[in-house]
């Protein structure tokens, strides 16, 4: 929901970033206030997943210019775990498998780490078990997931649900959902979207990185940004996503005006 008076959670100014010397982000400006849902759309290679990883602090990327503030705190100086503890959450496009580590154990460690950072009480395994089972209901997850190794042997949909479960547990200020809809059938998509909708509120903010309009039917964005070649080239309301669906990315592409072509 848009409320111009609500406070700014994320403020990105002229953000530039490289990977292996190649510039991917070429001056991103983005302001996200509490209570808002932003969708970032664009073709493969436009830099939207890079933006997600750079915000989370992935070490493969080098920030060469600009600033990123979370609640007025410059987070570019923070290592990834500090950003996570400060309230940045990234739901991964490809959640990694961690064989041998029980999901319950992993979830509890993550939860308690963030809790202790916030000066709140940590939960012992029994308390946590009750707590996590409640949260799992949000995502219609089978409690069996707790005993399995983190993401190991999970289907695409199970992995994505497990990501949103972590979002529900950690209660981040800013959630970045990187292609959370990819690989989901329509039923799973509805469940995941429903989970996200129950987690979002006026005190947090969400960025949805996605290719397709489809997800936005279920999680309705307040703003839609279109990325191309490392920049946000157009920003609009939720209707922009529908227009993109109808007309394709060429419709907004700067390439149409400059003849530079669309990045792929």
């Amino acid at each position: 929901m848009i409320n111009k008076n609500s406070k700014t959670i994320l403020d990105v100014r002229e953000l530039h970033a490289n990977i292996h010397g190649t510039e991917i982000l070429k001056g991103i400006n983005l302001t996200v206030r509490s209570g808002e849902i932003h969708a970032i759309m664009g073709l493969n290679g436009s830099g939207k997943s890079t933006l997600a990883k750079v915000l989370a602090g992935h070490s493969d990327y080098e920030v060469t210019g600009g600033s990123v503030k979370l609640d007025d705190q410059d987070i570019l100086e923070l290592v990834p775990e500090e950003r996570a503890r400060a309230g940045v959450f990234l739901a991964f496009q490809y959640p990694i498998e961690i064989p041998g580590v029980a999901n319950s154990q992993f979830l509890r460690l993550a939860y308690n780490t963030v809790q202790s950072q916030r000066g709140k009480e940590e939960l012992d395994p029994l308390e946590f078990d009750d707590f996590v089972r409640e949260k799992m209901k949000l995502l219609e997850m089978n409690p069996d997931f707790l005993d399995r190794s983190v993401n190991e042997g999970f289907s695409g949909g199970e992995k994505k649900r497990n990501e949103i479960l972590q979002m529900a547990l950690l209660e981040p200020k800013l959630s970045i959902l990187d292609e959370t809809d990819s690989g989901l059938d329509i039923d799973a998509l509805k469940i995941v979207a429903n989970g996200v909708n129950q987690i979002t509120n006026e005190n947090n903010a969400t960025i949805l990185v996605t290719h397709y309009q489809r997800l936005l039917d279920y999680i309705v964005p307040d703003y839609v940004h279109v990325m191309e070649a490392g920049r946000i080239i157009k920003t609009g309301g939720k209707e922009l996503a529908l227009q993109l669906e109808t007309h394709g990315y060429d419709w907004v592409s700067s390439g149409n005006q400059t003849n530079a072509g669309v990045t792929t």
Binding site: P80, L90, F92, L109, A110, Q117, L170
Partner: peptide
């Protein structure tokens, strides 16, 4: 990175793995 993104530092992550 996955662990770090959940607030868990490398030391604890390695130990857990």
């Amino acid at each position: 990175f996955y662990f770090a993104q959940r607030g868990i530092d490398a030391e604890e992550a390695v130990s857990m793995i």
